[in-house]
Nucleic acid binder design. Sequence first.
DNA 1: AGTTGTGAACCGGTTCACAGCC
DNA 2: GGCTGTGAACCGGTTCACAACT
Lengths: 284, 284
Amino acid sequence: MTAHGEGVRDGDAHGAEEPASEQQSSDGVAIPEPQDRAKAIPEAAVARLAVYLRVLSGFAEQEVHTVSSEELAVAAGVNSAKLRKDLSYIGSYGTRGVGYEVAVLIGQIERTLGLTQQHSVAVIGIGNLGHALANYGGFPSRGFPVAALFDLDPDLMGVPVGGIPVDHVDDIPRVCAERDVTIGAIATPAKGAQEVCDRLVQAGVRCVLNFAPVVLQVPEEVEVRKVDLAVEMQILSFHVARRSQETSESTTSEAEAEADGAAQSKTRDVNAGVNPVDGMVVRP
Amino acid sequence: MTAHGEGVRDGDAHGAEEPASEQQSSDGVAIPEPQDRAKAIPEAAVARLAVYLRVLSGFAEQEVHTVSSEELAVAAGVNSAKLRKDLSYIGSYGTRGVGYEVAVLIGQIERTLGLTQQHSVAVIGIGNLGHALANYGGFPSRGFPVAALFDLDPDLMGVPVGGIPVDHVDDIPRVCAERDVTIGAIATPAKGAQEVCDRLVQAGVRCVLNFAPVVLQVPEEVEVRKVDLAVEMQILSFHVARRSQETSESTTSEAEAEADGAAQSKTRDVNAGVNPVDGMVVRP
DNA sequence: AGTTGTGAACCGGTTCACAGCC
DNA sequence: GGCTGTGAACCGGTTCACAACT
C-alpha cells in the first residue's frame, strides 16, 4: 500500500523505470523513490476526488453523517471499488464494517486538493464567457474567489462585473501581485491568449485554465488545463454518428414511441471522471 | 434515500453496449467480438482527432497542402507516433515519404467525427453561461448551429439571444422535435438539471453536454459528457498544493548525467486526453 | 454479520522501433 | 534519403476478489 512499504510493482509489468528525473544510482537497481512517498495520486483520481467532495457536501447538508463506499459511489456515478481505491490514495479514513464519516472525508479531500487555502482567480477576457466566469457562484463558494478581471476594451475599464472592476491587461502583473492571484482563467480569443498567458506567468501565476483554442507555451513549472467546447461537441458528434450507423438506418426521427419507457436504468456516463470542454470566445 | 441496490447493484457504467467480452473465465477461446465493425477508435483518440482537425484547418487557410506527421504533431501538441497511430484508426490516407494531404485528412476526419452532417444544438438555461454558449461563434462555424434556447424565466420568453428566441422548458419536447435537435447543452443550475435532461431524452435527444454540477441519470443509449468548471479549478488547486509542498527542493532536476536524449521540451500539459491546438501563428 | 483497504490481474491507451513504401 | 503505418512492448489506471478489521 502506499503508506511506507515497498511499492513493488507486480511482475508482469516491469516495475522500475521511472521517467527520467530519477537520480538513479551508479549501479544498483533503480529503487523507486522511497522518499517521494505520499505523492502519486493518479490524475484521473484527483478529478474524481473533486466529484466525491461535491457529493459529500450534499450528504452533509442532508445531515447524513456516515456513508458506505457503495452509497457514495452510486451518488458519484462510479463503482465502489474504484471509489475505495481513490480514497485509499489519500489515506485510510474509513471504518470497516461501518463506512466513512462524511465530515472526516470532506476534510481529508479538501486537504489533499489544497482547498484549505483560498485561491484567488483572475479572469482575462470579459466577453460572454468571461462574464459567466466572473458571475459563476460555484467558484467563490468553493474557495476560488474571483479577485481580478482584465480586458483590452477601454470601454470596460473600471466597469464592475460581478462586483469586480475590470482592469487593463497591461496591469496584470501589478494587480495579480497585489491581490495574490494564483489561478488565471484565459477566456480571450485565440490570438491574444499566449500573450496574456505570458503576463500571467510573469506575475507569478502558476496555474492556468485555458478556454482559448490554442496550445499555450509555458515554463515547466506552470500547470495548464484546457477546456475546449468545440472538441466536446465533436466528440458527441462522433458518438451520434457511430450510433446511427449502428442502427442500420432511419433512426426514427421523432421516435417518441418509447418515450419514458426507458426510464432511468443505469447511470450511463461516458466520462466517469471529468471532461474538459469548451472554449468560447466571443467578442462582439 | 439511497436506492439500496436491490437487483440493480450495477453502479458501474459499462461503457460500450456490446463490449460484453467476458474473459474472466479461462475456458480457452477468447471469444473475439462476433460483430466486429469499424469501431474501436479509442475515446482519447477521438478527442485528439478533433484537435488535429482544427490545426489542419489552420494549415489549409495558409495554403499549406501537405503536412508530415511531425509537423502536424508539433502543431497539435502531441508526439508524432501518437498522431500517426490516431490517424491509422481512420484509415491510411498518407503517402510514405511525403506526408498527408491536408484536404484529404480534413475530409476523412470530418467524416469520422460525423461532421458531414449538421447537428443542431439546444441550450437550456439562459444565464451567463447560456448566453455565452448561444453566442459562441465556434459552434455554427463548425457545424453545430444553435437551434433552440430554453429557460424557465417568463421574462425571457421570446427574447432573442444570439438571434434565437427563448422558449419555455416545457416546450422542449415539441421544439426539439420540430428543429431536429440532436445535442442538448444543459447550462442550468444543479437543481433543475435532471428534469431538463429527462425532457431532452423524452424529446429524442441522445447526446448531452452537461455543465451543471450533478451526475445525470440517463438511459443507456444516451451519451453524456460533463464539464465542470469547479472540478477543473480543484484539480489546479491540487497541483498548486503539491507544487508548493515540493518547494523544499530545488525545482531543477538533478544532474542528468549526460544528455540522455529525451530532453524534448514538451509542452507541459496536464490534460491527459486532449491537447490543445496551435494556431501556428500564436505569436503576434 | 458488514465494509474497508489493497495486492494482483486486467485492460486500454501510449510509446517504441522498424518494416514497408515512395 | 524520408515518411507512413503498425505490431509489440510498456505503462497507468481500472477492476477483481479477498484478507483485515469492526
